[in-house]
Design a protein around this nucleic acid. Structure first.
Length: 271
DNA sequence: AGTGCGGCCTGTCCGC
DNA sequence: TGCGGACAGGCCGCAC
């Protein structure tokens, strides 16, 4: 499932195929994604030249002369570079056809992804304007995290998964970062000490950075732009390992539901 | 303001 | 073997 490292891996994979290319056509087979693809989008984007492929949190931003495509992969979505004439398979909802004869193909079985457009600066778009800092940027600072956690009674896991606090930390990497920093996921955010918050911030950076380095995590069917899986799954300490021995201390990993999401943790390593 | 939950969607898994 | 129902899961938007 695409989290920040998977989205970044996709971005890096598609960028060289897109920048400088002209959009021949946007072919939308299924308009009903999480939000309807704007009806006017194919006409607006046609003929424009792609200038950059960026990312903000888990949103891919394809900047063209006409404006910016805001593309989210949802849970099971993928973007792949294909030959323009390769036949579509099930759930291939959108093709961005290029003047090179290739296309960027969006597949999303759950339709939790979205494809939107803005003519203005993307950071002003409603979906992006309230996002917190990027965890891999210089602006991501442990002391800011700690300060904003004052008085918070929500769990530390919910806290770091809040996109207004940290952008782009999802379920897998939240569990992994908490394991690495030895913090129990159910602990109230306001009760995490300044020192431990620093360890958590460092772990968030580390886990995301390492995952990007190996092409992301492949759970079930994630593939990158060329159809390759990621290899971070082999480095997960707790995620989807309920009942199996902790890789550090052999204590069985526990699972519980937190805010409608599965949380995994080691009761011995995390306090 | 902070918190928690409903809903979108469908492949997979489980029990009958 | 077939079928229905529960479940997962990012994340917006709403209710409290």
């Amino acid at each position: 499932m695409p989290e920040l490292p998977e989205v970044e891996t996709t971005r890096r994979g598609i960028e060289p195929w897109l920048v400088g290319r002209r959009v021949e056509r946007l072919l939308v087979r299924e308009w009903r994604l999480r939000w309807r693809v704007p009806r006017s989008l194919p006409a607006r984007i046609r003929g424009s030249t792609i200038r950059a492929v960026g990312r903000r949190a888990k949103y891919l931003l394809i900047a063209t002369d006409a404006g910016t495509l805001i593309w989210h992969l949802g849970m099971y979505g993928s973007l792949r570079i294909m030959d323009g004439d390769s036949p579509p398979l099930a759930h291939d909802h959108v093709d961005l056809m290029l003047d090179s004869g290739r296309c960027l193909r969006f597949n999303d079985p759950r339709r939790f992804g979205c494809l939107l457009f803005t003519a203005g600066p993307p950071e002003k778009h409603a979906l992006l304007s309230r996002l917190a800092v990027e965890p891999l940027s210089e602006e991501f600072r442990a002391d800011d995290l700690w300060r904003r956690a004052r008085g918070r009674r929500a769990s530390i896991k919910a806290f770091i998964m809040d996109s207004r606090i940290v952008a782009g930390v999802g379920n897998i990497y939240a569990s992994e970062a908490l394991f690495r920093s030895g913090i129990r996921p159910g602990l109230a955010a306001g009760r995490v000490s300044r020192v431990r918050m620093a360890a958590l911030a460092a772990s968030i950076r580390a886990v995301l950075g390492e995952a990007i380095g190996v092409g992301g995590t492949t759970l079930r069917d994630y593939v990158d732009a060329s159809g390759m899986p990621g290899y971070f799954g082999q480095k997960l300490f707790v995620y989807e390992r309920a009942g199996r021995p902790c890789r550090k201390c052999r204590t069985p990993i526990r699972q519980f539901t937190q805010g409608q999401r599965s949380t995994y943790w080691c009761p011995h390593c995390q306090r």
